[in-house]
């Protein structure tokens, strides 16, 4: 395996890269390969130990912020500042989390519901629009079909922020600015390029025999698609649901600008911005609010980790 059961050379490279990432932590491991250089055949295990030390340090850097966020959601301001890494029974309190939960500025529970609704609607609309057109593209052989695919794929290279200004204009003309349908329309369109691309790639691997079998049954083309082809697409639909859900849940700019603070509709991200943006030095608001905002995403990740990682890999490498 290429898992680099670290030889001298990888050890040196290791120290080099880590120095770039976490400046402070690299110092101790960096000295180890140097002492090993005189021995062409290092004692077994030294490299392995070094590897786990490096991994452990990086893991610590990754986990400590999460730990800080969790424990400090239960402490008063002075305790947060005095000892950010510790929690004692006498400073522990649920009152701040309670306050964040019932905050008038930011109704977290409502925001969960609103965001979840948006995630569901965008997934539903995006898939309902993308699946049939991807089928037409995948089965078509003319230049029109290729052109159609290129049209959608060009969307992959257009940053959403670039079109946001004129989108506001278009939505205003349509009378949908500051409304939920307007927001869903934009987010759905934003999911189309990746969705259509992955769907079409997947449908090319589905044999045409199935189309013909459905046609023999006398079903119309459209009914045949939804009844016979769409159910086969389950794996790629799952991938897309994962990708779209994460991007809609985490999106901040589009809801902030399309829905706008005036609409009174807050997603988790725009709500956090409204609640934390003004009070960023009041840690008894910051940490509980962030904890509440992060919890559903973390739970979703823990439960769906395999699908999320598989989906991301499929989404990125098929492109």
């Amino acid at each position: 395996m290429a898992t680099t059961e670290t030889t001298t050379a990888t050890g040196a490279a290791a120290a080099g890269v880590v120095r770039a990432g976490t400046a402070a932590d690299a110092a101790p491991p960096a000295t180890t390969p140097r002492t090993r250089r005189p021995h062409p055949r290092p004692r077994p295990g030294v490299g392995t130990v070094l590897k786990w030390v490096v991994l452990g340090l990086v893991a610590l850097v990754m986990v400590v912020p999460l730990y800080i966020m969790v424990i400090n959601a239960f402490k008063p301001q002075d305790a947060i500042i005095a000892s950010p890494l510790a929690i004692t029974p006498d400073t522990f309190s649920l009152e701040y989390l309670q306050a964040a939960l019932t905050s008038e500025k930011f109704n977290v529970v409502r925001a969960y519901g609103v965001t979840l609704l948006f995630v569901a609607l965008v997934n539903l609309c995006g898939i309902a629009l993308a699946a049939p057109v991807a089928y037409v593209i995948a089965r078509g052989r003319s230049k029109w079909h290729l052109g159609l695919l290129l049209l959608f794929v060009s969307g992959l290279f257009i940053p959403g922020q670039v079109t946001l200004i004129p989108v506001v204009f278009v939505l205003r003309v349509l009378g949908l600015i500051n409304t939920i349908p307007g927001f869903i329309l934009f987010e759905t369109a934003a999911t189309l390029p990746v969705t259509i691309f992955l769907f079409a790639a997947y449908l090319r691997t589905v044999p045409r025999d199935i189309d013909e079998a459905a046609a023999l049954d006398g079903a119309g083309k459209i009914r045949a698609f939804w009844a016979c082809i769409f159910p086969i697409m389950k794996p790629v639909v799952a991938t897309i649901v994962v990708l779209n859900s994460i991007s809609v849940w985490n999106d901040f700019v589009s809801p902030q600008i399309i829905l706008g603070p005036g609409s009174g509709i807050y997603t988790v991200t725009t709500g956090v911005y409204a609640a934390v943006g003004e009070f960023s030095t009041d840690y008894t608001t910051v940490f509980p609010t962030l904890l509440l905002a992060v919890t559903p995403a973390i739970l979703f990740f823990v439960l769906m980790q395999r699908h999320i990682i598989g989906g991301l890999v499929a989404g990125a490498t098929k492109g």
Partner: peptide
């Protein structure tokens, strides 16, 4: 089957790009 997706995409991506 293709029309609705094309319309939505034109309205929210291609037209805005030219408008920009």
């Amino acid at each position: 089957m293709g029309g609705p997706a094309v319309l939505v995409f034109l309205a929210m991506f291609i037209v805005p790009m030219f408008l920009a």
